[in-house]
């Protein structure tokens, strides 16, 4: 059903990337948001995407797990094409059950946390374990509690989202994504909705995930995090990648004038 990615693994023997987004294009009506954006992420790599608002970085992230359906290009995770299948030379949607399985292998952390408002912290984490991973209620709860402990939220397992601070909600949201053991974790401006004093607790959880070898793509405005934690930084502007490379280089000695202009504005 799924088409193997036309990949350098066959050509050169280099291990293929965990996540590969190729030539992604997306427009909302006449407004072109993404123009031919490609990104490969290796296993265990942490890639930060920075750029001015409206540059298309969030839309790109949402195209990766098909929350937005790209108009052009394709996304592969471990060589499996996401959301699409080729049948007799025609590109079709995959059945919704297949897309659900593919999404379960990609975690997503949202700017606005999006915790399930009617469920406690532990049930937020356990819901998909029960419904998607088909774990029993006690097993899902046990696993959820241990993942909550890993983000320092086990004391708040019985709290509803409305009873938690923004930073605590975001840590539960990260636990909800991590519990599914995704191949790649996508973060969509995870600290942008937080009060300044709460940013640190979320970044430190993300830093420790990176330390454990989690493959991560992080859309962020936190240049400090990009510099210290990420292997690679991508600068996007006007719906395209302007510059990318090792974080120290892109953030330290950017070669593109637009990157320099952006960095000087947010520092």
């Amino acid at each position: 059903m799924t088409v193997p990615m036309p990949m350098r693994s066959k050509e050169t023997g280099v291990p293929r990337p965990t996540l590969s987004a190729r030539h992604i294009g997306k427009a909302f009506g006449a407004h072109v948001v993404l123009k031919d954006v490609s990104l490969d992420v290796e296993r265990g790599e942490v890639v930060c995407i920075i750029g001015p608002s409206g540059s298309g970085k969030s839309t790109f992230l949402r195209c990766i797990n098909f929350l937005e359906v790209p108009d052009a290009g394709g996304v592969w995770v471990d060589g499996e094409r996401i959301g699409c299948q080729e049948v007799d030379g025609v590109l079709w949607e995959v059945p919704s059950a297949v897309l659900a399985r593919q999404r379960a292998a990609m975690g997503m952390v949202f700017q606005r946390f999006n915790l399930f408002g009617h469920l406690t912290a532990v049930d937020n984490v356990a819901l998909a374990l029960r419904l998607v991973k088909r774990m029993s209620r006690p097993a899902a709860r046990e696993r959820a509690l241990s993942v909550l402990a890993s983000v320092g939220m086990e004391r708040f397992a019985g709290h509803r989202p409305a009873q938690l601070s923004g930073g605590q909600q975001q840590r539960v949201a990260i636990a909800r994504a991590v519990a599914m053991e995704p191949k790649v974790l996508l973060f969509d401006e995870p600290t942008s909705a937080l009060d300044p004093e709460l940013v640190h607790e979320v970044l430190s959880v993300m830093g420790s995930l990176a330390g454990q070898g989690m493959t991560m793509v992080v859309v962020t405005h936190e240049i400090g995090f990009a510099r210290e934690v990420s292997n690679r930084t991508v600068f996007m502007d006007g719906g395209a990648i302007v510059e990318q490379g090792p974080s120290a280089q892109v953030l330290g000695q950017p070669s593109e004038p637009r990157t320099r202009a952006f960095l000087s504005k947010i520092k």
């Binding site: 659900a100 379960a104 975690g107 949202f110 999006n114």
Partner: peptide
């Protein structure tokens, strides 16, 4: 965002 979070962890439409 509730629906987006739910599909992002792999829930199907009915769930």
């Amino acid at each position: 965002g509730q629906g987006e979070a739910a599909v992002s962890v792999g829930l199907n439409r009915r769930q």
